Computed example of a mutant assay.
Amino acid sequence: MIGSFWWPFCRLMGAFIVMPLLGNAFVPVTVRILLAFSLAALLGPMLPPVPQVDAVSAGALLLAIEQLLIGFMLGLFLSILLHVMSMLGTIMSMQMGLAMAIMNDPANGNSNPILSQWFLMFGTLIFLALDGHLVAIGILVDSFRLWPIGTGIFDLPLMGLIHRVGWLFAASLMLAIPAVLAMLMVNITFGVLSRAAPSLNIFSLGFPMTMLMGLLCVLLSFSGIPSRYSDVCLDALTAMYQFIGGSA
């Protein structure tokens, strides 16, 4: 009976370590533990029979680590999903010349351009508005049926998870292409202008215009990104579901 609560708790806790919002350093560890324990207590009576393993044996330790890793990989899908918006902000900041405007992020232990933090917050709100967090928890619950405890970890499609890293760059570039092309046209225009009028101080004129054009692209992006980002969220959640053997 203890195992029916402990193994689900390990898998849920592994997912909550890296999941957006819950995996943030500002969320106390106690909150994550209590949430994982509450869900495990609710799921315990409904799960298939768990393996009978001695609680103080090496097999129990390996099984706990296995469940932590499965939950970690499931939560990693959502972490990659939200980093699409962070990468989008980085690409647009570099095109605008705002890459030097860096803000330290103590929650994640890194430094990102301010625009990346802005887009990351926007993407998180879109994800919550689409009830993506409820769908993700539902997939975690279904994982105990689709990939029962004790099935193993090496039979999972691990290459599919690795390919999501490439998908991260592709999705962020897809969202940033309109702004990148607009900024490229601005740079080409000022390049032609500098050749036509060499005496013109292109730096004093080009940087403010590039900045204004970049801010206009950001304004237009905030109105067009939600519909595209919803498709990205659906793709990430579908990949998360298929990773544990579900069918789309």
Rank of each mutant, 00 (worst) to 15 (best):
D142C: 01
P106Y: 07
S86G: 12
H133D: 10
Q95N: 08
M96W: 01
G132C: 01
W118M: 14
L134S: 10
A136G: 06
L158S: 03
I153S: 12
V84W: 01
M85L: 11
F119E: 01
G109Y: 04
F122N: 03
A129G: 05
M121A: 11
I102E: 06
F144E: 04
L98R: 12
I139R: 10
P148Y: 01
T90M: 10
F144H: 10
T151R: 15
M121H: 12
A129M: 10
P148F: 00
L88P: 05
I137H: 05
L146F: 03
P106F: 03
G132H: 12
N112K: 11
M94T: 15
P106L: 07
W147L: 13
G89V: 02
S93W: 08
L134N: 14
L98P: 04
W118V: 12
Q95L: 10
L115H: 02
L146Y: 03
N112G: 00
L156K: 14
F154I: 03
M103A: 13
P113M: 00
P113F: 01
T124V: 07
F127Y: 14
V141R: 15
M92Q: 11
F154Y: 02
M121F: 00
G132V: 02
F122A: 13
G138T: 10
V141A: 12
P148E: 08
A136F: 09
V141L: 04
D155S: 14
L158W: 11
P157Y: 02
H133G: 02
W118G: 05
I102G: 03
A136K: 05
I149N: 09
T124A: 04
P106T: 05
G123C: 08
M87D: 08
D131I: 00
L146H: 07
V135E: 13
S116I: 05
N112W: 00
L140T: 09
S86V: 01
D142P: 07
G97D: 08
L140N: 03
S93K: 07
N104G: 11
M96H: 07
G97N: 09
N110L: 03
L156N: 08
I126H: 06
S93N: 07
G109W: 01
G89P: 05
P106V: 12
I139A: 04
G152N: 06
M85I: 04
M94L: 15
L82A: 05
Q117R: 10
I139Y: 06
L82F: 06
I149C: 06
V141S: 12
Q117L: 13
N112V: 05
M96E: 00
T90V: 10
L88Y: 11
S111Y: 09
W147H: 15
I91G: 01
F127A: 11
L134A: 13
M121R: 15
F119V: 00
T124H: 07
N108A: 13
L146W: 03
L156V: 01
S116D: 04
M85K: 05
I137M: 15
T124Q: 12
G109M: 02
I126C: 13
A99M: 14
L128T: 09
W118L: 15
M100V: 12
M121T: 14
Q117I: 06
L88C: 05
V141C: 13
N108Q: 12
I149L: 06
P106K: 14
V135P: 00
D142W: 01
G109C: 00
G97H: 03
P113C: 01
Q117C: 00
P106M: 02
H83W: 02
M85R: 09
I149V: 15
V84K: 08
